[in-house]
Protein backbone atom coordinates (compact mmCIF):
# COMPACT_ATOMS: atom_id res chain seq x y z
CA UNK A 1 0.00 0.00 0.00
CA UNK A 2 2.65 2.42 1.02
CA UNK A 3 4.92 1.36 -1.80
CA UNK A 4 2.14 2.13 -4.23
CA UNK A 5 1.78 5.65 -2.88
CA UNK A 6 5.49 6.17 -2.97
CA UNK A 7 5.61 5.02 -6.52
CA UNK A 8 2.79 7.33 -7.58
CA UNK A 9 4.47 10.23 -5.90
CA UNK A 10 7.73 9.35 -7.56
CA UNK A 11 6.04 9.10 -10.91
CA UNK A 12 4.59 12.58 -10.39
CA UNK A 13 7.97 14.05 -9.46
CA UNK A 14 9.58 12.53 -12.48
CA UNK A 15 6.85 13.91 -14.64
CA UNK A 16 7.43 17.37 -13.21
CA UNK A 17 11.17 17.09 -13.64
CA UNK A 18 11.02 15.60 -17.12
CA UNK A 19 12.12 18.66 -18.99
CA UNK A 20 14.47 20.09 -16.42
CA UNK A 21 18.20 20.00 -16.86
CA UNK A 22 19.33 17.97 -13.82
CA UNK A 23 22.80 16.87 -12.77
CA UNK A 24 23.41 13.12 -12.74
CA UNK A 25 23.20 12.79 -8.96
CA UNK A 26 19.73 14.31 -8.90
CA UNK A 27 18.55 12.34 -11.90
CA UNK A 28 19.68 9.19 -10.18
CA UNK A 29 17.83 10.15 -7.03
CA UNK A 30 14.63 10.37 -9.01
CA UNK A 31 14.99 6.66 -9.64
CA UNK A 32 15.73 5.84 -6.02
CA UNK A 33 12.84 3.48 -5.47
CA UNK A 34 13.19 1.75 -8.79
CA UNK A 35 13.59 -1.97 -8.29
CA UNK A 36 12.34 -1.94 -4.69
CA UNK A 37 9.24 -3.93 -3.87
CA UNK A 38 7.42 -4.33 -0.61
CA UNK A 39 7.99 -8.06 -0.52
CA UNK A 40 11.78 -7.75 -0.45
CA UNK A 41 13.69 -9.04 2.51
CA UNK A 42 14.48 -5.85 4.36
CA UNK A 43 17.75 -7.14 5.73
CA UNK A 44 19.31 -7.60 2.31
CA UNK A 45 18.89 -3.96 1.27
CA UNK A 46 21.39 -1.17 1.51
CA UNK A 47 20.52 1.44 4.09
CA UNK A 48 22.11 4.75 4.80
CA UNK A 49 21.68 5.65 8.42
CA UNK A 50 21.93 9.38 8.79
CA UNK A 51 22.17 12.11 11.35
CA UNK A 52 22.59 15.82 10.85
CA UNK A 53 23.63 18.62 13.16
CA UNK A 54 22.05 22.02 12.64
CA UNK A 55 22.46 25.55 13.84
CA UNK A 56 19.20 25.19 15.76
CA UNK A 57 15.85 23.50 15.96
CA UNK A 58 13.82 25.89 13.86
CA UNK A 59 13.50 24.34 10.41
CA UNK A 60 12.64 27.65 8.78
CA UNK A 61 15.70 29.59 9.83
CA UNK A 62 18.33 27.08 10.86
CA UNK A 63 20.73 25.23 8.64
CA UNK A 64 22.75 22.05 8.45
CA UNK A 65 26.29 22.23 9.89
CA UNK A 66 27.28 18.61 9.57
CA UNK A 67 26.13 15.52 7.76
CA UNK A 68 27.10 12.12 9.05
CA UNK A 69 25.93 8.82 7.61
CA UNK A 70 26.88 5.19 7.63
CA UNK A 71 25.95 2.40 5.27
CA UNK A 72 24.41 -0.93 6.10
CA UNK A 73 23.93 -4.01 4.01
CA UNK A 74 22.96 -7.59 4.85
CA UNK A 75 22.27 -6.29 8.33
CA UNK A 76 25.90 -5.33 8.82
CA UNK A 77 27.18 -1.83 9.40
CA UNK A 78 30.06 -1.20 7.05
CA UNK A 79 32.46 1.29 8.49
CA UNK A 80 34.20 2.13 5.26
CA UNK A 81 30.83 3.01 3.74
CA UNK A 82 30.45 6.27 5.64
CA UNK A 83 29.96 9.91 4.86
CA UNK A 84 30.98 12.81 7.03
CA UNK A 85 31.17 16.47 6.13
CA UNK A 86 30.99 19.73 7.98
CA UNK A 87 28.93 22.35 6.22
CA UNK A 88 29.47 26.10 6.32
CA UNK A 89 26.04 27.58 7.17
CA UNK A 90 24.88 30.89 5.76
CA UNK A 91 23.17 31.98 8.93
CA UNK A 92 24.91 32.68 12.21
CA UNK A 93 25.59 29.84 14.63
CA UNK A 94 23.64 30.03 17.82
CA UNK A 95 25.43 29.28 21.01
CA UNK A 96 23.00 26.61 22.12
CA UNK A 97 23.77 24.20 19.35
CA UNK A 98 27.51 24.68 19.75
CA UNK A 99 27.09 23.35 23.23
CA UNK A 100 25.48 20.20 21.89
CA UNK A 101 27.68 19.25 19.02
CA UNK A 102 30.82 21.04 20.04
CA UNK A 103 31.62 22.39 16.61
CA UNK A 104 33.26 25.79 16.90
CA UNK A 105 32.41 28.41 14.26
CA UNK A 106 36.01 28.63 13.09
CA UNK A 107 35.94 25.06 11.82
CA UNK A 108 32.72 25.70 9.98
CA UNK A 109 34.04 28.75 8.21
CA UNK A 110 36.71 26.59 6.65
CA UNK A 111 34.10 24.00 5.64
CA UNK A 112 32.50 23.83 2.18
CA UNK A 113 29.05 25.25 1.51
CA UNK A 114 26.03 23.01 1.35
CA UNK A 115 25.77 23.32 -2.47
CA UNK A 116 29.16 21.69 -2.65
CA UNK A 117 28.55 19.02 -0.07
CA UNK A 118 25.10 17.96 -1.11
CA UNK A 119 25.85 16.47 -4.55
CA UNK A 120 28.58 14.39 -2.93
CA UNK A 121 26.06 13.24 -0.36
CA UNK A 122 23.57 12.30 -3.07
CA UNK A 123 26.23 10.25 -4.82
CA UNK A 124 27.00 8.50 -1.57
CA UNK A 125 23.35 7.95 -0.72
CA UNK A 126 22.48 6.44 -4.07
CA UNK A 127 19.28 4.46 -3.99
CA UNK A 128 19.64 3.31 -0.40
CA UNK A 129 16.77 3.40 2.05
CA UNK A 130 17.34 6.33 4.37
CA UNK A 131 17.17 5.67 8.12
CA UNK A 132 17.23 8.32 10.83
CA UNK A 133 16.07 8.88 14.36
CA UNK A 134 13.16 11.32 14.25
CA UNK A 135 13.60 11.20 10.53
CA UNK A 136 11.16 14.03 9.88
CA UNK A 137 13.54 16.51 11.41
CA UNK A 138 16.52 15.45 9.31
CA UNK A 139 14.38 15.05 6.24
CA UNK A 140 13.03 18.54 6.50
CA UNK A 141 16.49 20.06 6.47
CA UNK A 142 17.67 17.76 3.70
CA UNK A 143 14.65 18.42 1.56
CA UNK A 144 14.99 22.15 2.02
CA UNK A 145 18.42 21.88 0.41
CA UNK A 146 17.33 19.29 -2.11
CA UNK A 147 14.36 21.35 -3.28
CA UNK A 148 16.33 24.55 -3.51
CA UNK A 149 19.02 22.82 -5.56
CA UNK A 150 16.98 20.52 -7.78
CA UNK A 151 13.36 21.46 -7.33
CA UNK A 152 12.13 18.23 -5.75
CA UNK A 153 12.58 16.43 -2.41
CA UNK A 154 14.61 13.26 -1.82
CA UNK A 155 12.98 10.28 -3.45
CA UNK A 156 14.51 7.60 -1.24
CA UNK A 157 12.35 5.52 1.04
CA UNK A 158 12.69 6.59 4.66
CA UNK A 159 12.50 4.66 7.92
CA UNK A 160 12.32 6.35 11.30
CA UNK A 161 13.92 4.49 14.21
CA UNK A 162 11.99 6.58 16.76
CA UNK A 163 8.73 5.37 15.33
CA UNK A 164 9.93 1.83 14.74
CA UNK A 165 10.85 1.73 18.39
CA UNK A 166 7.25 2.50 19.31
CA UNK A 167 5.79 -0.15 17.08
CA UNK A 168 4.81 -3.62 18.22
CA UNK A 169 7.62 -5.22 16.23
CA UNK A 170 10.27 -3.80 18.41
CA UNK A 171 8.89 -2.13 21.52
CA UNK A 172 8.53 -5.41 23.44
CA UNK A 173 12.01 -6.60 22.78
CA UNK A 174 13.42 -3.54 24.51
CA UNK A 175 10.66 -3.13 27.08
CA UNK A 176 9.48 0.28 26.02
CA UNK A 177 6.22 1.34 27.58
CA UNK A 178 3.63 1.77 24.90
CA UNK A 179 1.80 5.04 24.49
CA UNK A 180 4.58 7.31 25.60
CA UNK A 181 6.43 9.75 23.44
CA UNK A 182 8.88 8.28 21.00
CA UNK A 183 12.09 7.46 22.81
CA UNK A 184 15.16 9.60 22.51
CA UNK A 185 18.28 8.15 20.95
CA UNK A 186 19.97 8.15 24.35
CA UNK A 187 17.17 6.16 25.91
CA UNK A 188 17.14 3.63 23.07
CA UNK A 189 20.91 3.24 23.19
CA UNK A 190 20.64 2.68 26.90
CA UNK A 191 17.90 0.08 26.50
CA UNK A 192 20.01 -1.74 23.95
CA UNK A 193 23.11 -1.58 26.14
CA UNK A 194 25.00 0.31 23.51
CA UNK A 195 27.97 2.35 24.51
CA UNK A 196 27.46 5.95 23.54
CA UNK A 197 30.66 6.52 21.79
CA UNK A 198 31.11 9.92 20.30
CA UNK A 199 27.55 10.92 20.75
CA UNK A 200 26.47 14.30 19.43
CA UNK A 201 28.65 14.26 16.44
CA UNK A 202 26.51 13.50 13.44
CA UNK A 203 28.57 10.46 12.49
CA UNK A 204 28.66 9.13 16.06
CA UNK A 205 24.89 9.46 16.34
CA UNK A 206 24.44 7.86 12.96
CA UNK A 207 26.47 4.87 14.13
CA UNK A 208 24.40 4.48 17.28
CA UNK A 209 21.22 4.79 15.25
CA UNK A 210 22.52 2.15 12.86
CA UNK A 211 23.27 -0.23 15.72
CA UNK A 212 19.75 0.22 17.00
CA UNK A 213 18.26 -0.21 13.54
CA UNK A 214 20.30 -3.40 13.20
CA UNK A 215 18.42 -4.85 16.15
CA UNK A 216 15.13 -3.78 14.69
CA UNK A 217 15.88 -5.67 11.49
CA UNK A 218 16.78 -8.70 13.54
CA UNK A 219 13.64 -8.44 15.67
CA UNK A 220 11.43 -8.07 12.61
CA UNK A 221 13.01 -11.06 10.95
CA UNK A 222 12.60 -13.14 14.09
CA UNK A 223 8.88 -12.42 14.13
CA UNK A 224 8.64 -13.48 10.50
CA UNK A 225 7.92 -9.93 9.43
CA UNK A 226 11.19 -9.05 7.83
CA UNK A 227 9.86 -7.61 4.57
CA UNK A 228 10.44 -4.05 3.49
CA UNK A 229 6.69 -3.40 3.46
CA UNK A 230 6.34 -4.46 7.11
CA UNK A 231 9.04 -2.05 8.18
CA UNK A 232 7.64 0.80 6.14
CA UNK A 233 4.22 0.18 7.63
CA UNK A 234 5.66 0.13 11.11
CA UNK A 235 7.60 3.31 10.52
CA UNK A 236 4.49 4.99 9.12
CA UNK A 237 2.11 3.78 11.77
CA UNK A 238 2.07 7.21 13.23
CA UNK A 239 1.47 7.71 16.87
CA UNK A 240 2.46 11.29 16.14
CA UNK A 241 0.61 13.87 14.21
CA UNK A 242 1.98 13.73 10.74
CA UNK A 243 2.66 16.97 9.07
CA UNK A 244 1.98 16.94 5.37
CA UNK A 245 5.10 18.93 4.90
CA UNK A 246 7.39 16.09 5.76
CA UNK A 247 5.48 13.10 4.60
CA UNK A 248 3.78 14.24 1.47
Amino acid sequence: MFMLRARLRNRWLRFKARNRDLPACARRNLAAIEGLTGGMNAKALRYVVLDIETTGLDPRHDEIVSLGAIGMQEGRIRLHDHFFELVNPQCRLKHGSIAIHGIVPGRLEAAPRVEEVFPRFLDYLGTAVLVAHHARFDLYFLNKVMTSLYGFPLCNLVLDTARLAMGPLFSQSICLEAGNDPPSLDLLADKCNLPLHERHTSLGDALVTAMIFQRMLEAAEKRGRGSLAELLKESRRAPLKTSGLFCL
Binding site: I77, L79, H80, Q214, R215, E218, A219
Partner: peptide, 8 residues
Protein backbone atom coordinates in the same frame (compact mmCIF):
# COMPACT_ATOMS: atom_id res chain seq x y z
CA UNK B 1 37.08 -2.37 6.80
CA UNK B 2 35.22 -3.60 9.83
CA UNK B 3 31.58 -4.46 9.51
CA UNK B 4 29.52 -4.43 12.66
CA UNK B 5 27.03 -7.24 13.09
CA UNK B 6 24.47 -7.96 15.73
CA UNK B 7 23.23 -11.40 16.75
CA UNK B 8 20.40 -11.96 19.20
Amino acid sequence: NIEIAYYP
